[in-house]
């Protein structure tokens, strides 16, 4: 197991390095003179120079890169053009909101997908299975930036059950954004659970368990479900990563004060250090989550370690 973790960890190093490099190069992709673009077309020459200096753009590219790397390693991601504070401060303030939203969505997805997936695996090709299939299809095709507004119209405007936007009303605020992101995930999970459990149910060990006197319920829940959950857990962990990026759009719909909204706000104010830092943090969180999901896979399925 230790060897497996170590191997996966070593694989992650060049990828992390690549991502940091990619984020570093972003600012150099700005067409024309980045300093002029950032300061604005009508900026005074001294302001342009100030921006150039603040971003280290006056240094040779190689020096800039080494500086950037050493700063990232020390956790110094620069200062915001807007607030002149450390960008990590803003990120730290917004991060919990995004994580909360991701967990809320996951909770809703599980709440829907488990019963639906299990029932449709047991009663394959029944009306409930078809219903679940239809739901999965809608869930996958429905863009969050449409589903979100529809939820707002139905449950925040027509019925005042939940707030239209913001994060000030605790759990009540969390419901609609979580539903928005959770539905797509629920659709994927329902299919996964259904396929995976249906396959396990055809295995001999299930027949054996029933032959030896286990009730059908016991054979399903004690024996088959356990094995069926292995691929589901991996997908779940992997999807947690995509919830973080999905949050960029959902946070925008509901004015949810998370990392995604911070990113979009800093793009519109051309606060590049903040943009760069937010992208880096989201991307790094994403690969960490994927790394964790790989480890989890190794834990739940001992066969993986042998590979």
């Amino acid at each position: 197991m230790v060897q497996y973790i170590l191997r996966r960890f070593l694989q992650m190093i060049p990828i992390t390095f690549g991502i940091v490099t990619l984020v570093f190069s972003l600012i150099h992709l700005i067409p024309g003179d980045p300093a002029l673009q950032i300061a604005g077309e009508n900026a005074r020459p001294q302001d342009v120079e100030q921006v150039r200096k603040a971003l280290g753009l006056d240094q040779p590219l190689w020096t800039q890169y080494v500086h950037y790397l050493s700063r990232v390693v020390r956790g110094d991601l620069g200062r915001s053009f807007q607030t002149n504070e450390s960008v990590t401060k803003q990120i730290a303030a917004r991060y919990p909101a995004t994580i909360q939203l991701a967990f809320g969505s996951m909770f809703i997805a599980l709440l829907v997908a488990f019963p639906l997936g299990i029932v449709s695996a047991i009663y394959r090709n029944s009306w409930i299975d078809n219903l679940a299939r239809f739901f999965a299809l809608i869930g996958v095709s429905m863009p969050s930036f449409w589903f979100g507004p529809l939820l707002i119209i139905a449950f925040a405007i027509n019925h005042h059950w939940f707030p239209v936007s913001g994060r000030d009303e605790g759990l009540r605020s969390l419901v609609l954004p979580s539903l928005t992101m959770g539905l797509a995930l629920a659709a994927i999970l329902t299919r996964m659970i259904r396929v995976s459990l249906a396959e396990e149910l055809t295995q001999l060990y299930v027949t054996t368990a029933i032959a030896k006197g286990a009730t059908r319920a016991k054979a399903i829940f004690r024996h088959a479900l356990k094995n069926a959950l292995i691929p589901v857990i991996t997908i779940l962990a992997l999807q947690f990563g995509s919830l973080l990026t999905g949050a960029i759009i959902t946070e925008q719909i509901f004015s949810w004060p998370g990392l995604g909204r911070l990113l979009i706000q800093s793009i519109s104010t051309r606060d590049y250090p903040q943009v760069q830092a937010s992208i880096l943090v989201i991307a790094l969180t994403y690969i960490m989550v994927n790394f964790a999901s790989d480890l989890l896979y190794g834990v739940v399925d001992p066969r993986i370690k042998l590979e």
Partner: peptide, 24 residues
């Protein structure tokens, strides 16, 4: 393949947002 590894590790829509943000 190593380059695709990095691009695949980077969440797609985030990279698109980042590129459009700098390119305009």
């Amino acid at each position: 393949m190593r380059f695709t590894d990095i691009l695949l590790a980077f969440p797609g829509i985030l990279l698109a947002i980042a590129l459009v943000a700098v390119l305009g």
